[in-house]
Design a protein around this nucleic acid. Structure first.
Lengths: 142, 142
DNA sequence: CTAAATAGTGGACAAAGTCAACTAAATGCA
DNA sequence: TGCATTTAGTTGACTTTGTCCACTATTTAG
């Protein structure tokens, strides 16, 4: 039983990563890489988030994240301030420019997903979304 | 309605890519990258597959694939022969070494997925897998 | 007060991925 | 048939991503 489950998860991964174009990162040709958009998303939705919180959230290497943040700061989409309660740390916020860029990104990403969903019938689309939302709730409440 | 659907798909992506560790490619420290494993998988399950079939299957750049194939040939996990019916093309097969490597990879990957599933209750796991299998069938029969 | 742990940075690479140009073979069609 | 187009795959020349490790500055624990 467990064997079958594992097989199914892996088959799902194979199909899903191709469907979503995760294998070729440039599919959505944006100014931002996938990980960069996740960092922006985090800063937008958790204003003042610290790099170490982001590494925990996204499960990526801290030096890699440090470079990403440097680049996002240089591009003026993120802003940092030093932490009052921990002198080693910083707090990140999205800037007005970042907000606008993120909005553009959102629209492009919405279009891309809309294109994928357009390949499905109305009822399949409904089922797809229902299943995704169940999976997400399972994973979020684990 | 459609807006909501798109939002859900994108939320799902965020949660799922983190859960599966897709953001940090080295999570499973294997000799093979994610894309390389997909190429091996393709050669194993569709013996004699051509590079152009693989680019269509995985939706990746042909020059990138060409380098990947060169590397897999060098590492003796793939074998090629020239096509009889199209002189420009080649057919790929997995070698005995490749088969063994793939088997190891499989076990490592199974362990990783087992570790993820172990975080869930029995019933959540069942539901997760059920939902994935539905999604997969929707995507495969589109 | 000192040792150990933690937050973030930076050097030095290695690996991944992209883009355009190129060769050779196959195909289309006048 | 014969020449223009397409198509399959390769290669050069990069750019971008991602990793490992050492290092500084704080903070925390004992």
């Amino acid at each position: 039983m467990k064997e079958k489950d594992i097989e199914e998860v892996r088959s799902f991964n194979r199909v899903y990563t191709v469907f979503m174009g995760i294998l070729n990162q440039r599919f959505l040709q944006s100014k931002f890489s996938l990980v960069e958009t996740r960092v922006l998303h985090a800063a937008l939705h958790q204003d003042g988030i610290t790099p170490s919180e982001i590494t925990a959230l996204l499960n990526i290497d801290k030096s890699y994240l440090s470079r990403i943040i440097t680049s996002l700061l240089r591009r003026k989409v993120l802003r940092k301030r030093k932490s009052a309660d921990d002198g080693r740390s910083i707090h990140l916020s999205i800037t007005e420019i970042g907000r606008r860029e993120f909005e553009k990104l959102n629209e492009a990403s919405n279009l891309q997903v809309a294109g994928l969903l357009a390949q499905l019938s109305e009822s399949d689309c409904k089922r797809l979304v229902k299943n995704m939302s169940e999976i997400r709730s399972i994973l979020e409440n684990r």
